[in-house]
């Protein structure tokens, strides 16, 4: 029992350490695809080290929410790391929560981030919050329905059951694509948001963290990396279902994530960011696909 707990902690730390690398890989791939050299894949780690050593500037007009938010956001995604079996299907704290808990713990972080962005009373923060909540209100239904479909297919909402999906089923692939579309929105990527933009008026996620600097920013960025790797992990279960072997599990896992990263990078390069209100169509479409996959799951496809 103690050994297992130890392994679960190791697995969570592994996810946290790996998370920035995935962002670095996507960034590098994007730059190479558009004929640029690009920064090293380890750049997100350098950024983290740089920011964590810096002092921060906090507006005099902010309340405790502003200061607590980075910890709450990072804490919430870190919790989720314990709920997911990544290296082996038994490595997770099962009784603590199922797949629904994953979604709602994310919502906790989002709620606080939206509040904190309003806290500093900057005009960009307010715009960022309102857009983020607008997007989330359409992303969540699609995510929920997709997760239920996965549950239907596996007979349980337990992460371990979802992680040990065997073989492809039409309905799970369909809800996987809905989940993929939502993942782009949740990770602030084109076509919903643009992480690289310098245009403060167009930002969504970036606008919310605009007031943050130094250590707090480092924590928030790390949280965003971890959230991304968690979404990609769930996608990898759906799209690359293969039995997880405890010894080589980590290698398989990294390979799967790299394949997903390539997909994300290519998508980001080949699309323009959509108009803000067009996101409604996009996420509405994801929701429809998810509903459709539920129908297919019910008729046993």
């Amino acid at each position: 029992m103690i050994e297992k707990t130890f392994l679960i902690i190791i697995q969570a730390v592994f996810l946290v350490i790996l998370a920035p690398l995935i962002s670095g890989i996507i960034h590098k791939l994007k730059n190479n695809l558009r004929m640029r050299k690009g920064a090293s894949v380890f750049q997100p780690y350098y950024n983290f080290v740089k920011l964590i050593a810096k002092d921060e500037v906090i507006s005099r007009n902010t309340s405790w929410i502003f200061r607590a938010t980075p910890v709450i956001v990072l804490g919430s995604v870190f919790c989720v790391c314990f709920l997911l079996p990544v290296l082996h299907k038994s490595f997770f704290l099962g009784p603590l929560g199922d797949m629904l808990a994953v979604i709602f713990v994310f919502s906790l972080g989002r709620f606080f981030l939206a509040l904190a962005a309003l806290d500093a009373a900057g005009s960009f923060g307010g715009m960022g919050s309102s857009r983020e909540v607008f997007i989330a209100s359409f992303a969540e239904p699609a995510t929920l329905v997709s997760i239920f479909v996965l549950g239907l297919n596996c007979g349980s909402l337990s992460p371990s059951a979802v992680a040990s999906l065997e073989g492809w089923r039409f309905s799970s692939l369909l809800c996987g694509s809905a989940l993929g579309m939502v993942a782009l929105a949740e990770t602030a990527r084109i076509p919903v948001d643009n992480q690289e933009t310098h245009l403060e008026l167009t930002m969504v996620h970036e606008a919310m963290v605009l007031e943050y600097s130094g250590r707090s920013l480092a924590l928030l960025e790390l949280a965003a990396h971890i959230k991304q790797i968690i979404f990609f992990t769930i996608l990898s279960w759906v799209f690359f279902p293969c039995p997880v072997n405890a010894v080589w599990g980590w290698a398989w896992f990294i390979i799967k994530l790299c394949i997903i990263s390539v997909f994300v990078a290519v998508t980001e390069i080949s699309l323009a960011k959509m108009r803000l209100f067009r996101v409604l169509d996009y996420l509405g479409f994801a929701f429809l696909i998810a509903i459709l996959s539920a129908v297919f799951a019910l008729i046993g496809m």
């Binding site: 558009r34 004929m35 643009n194 690289e196 933009t197 699309l271």
Partner: peptide
Amino acid sequence: IALDVGFSFPAQFASL
């Protein structure tokens, strides 16, 4: 124009 809508490949191509 391409860069401002996040369409980065043509943006890079234009700068080239």
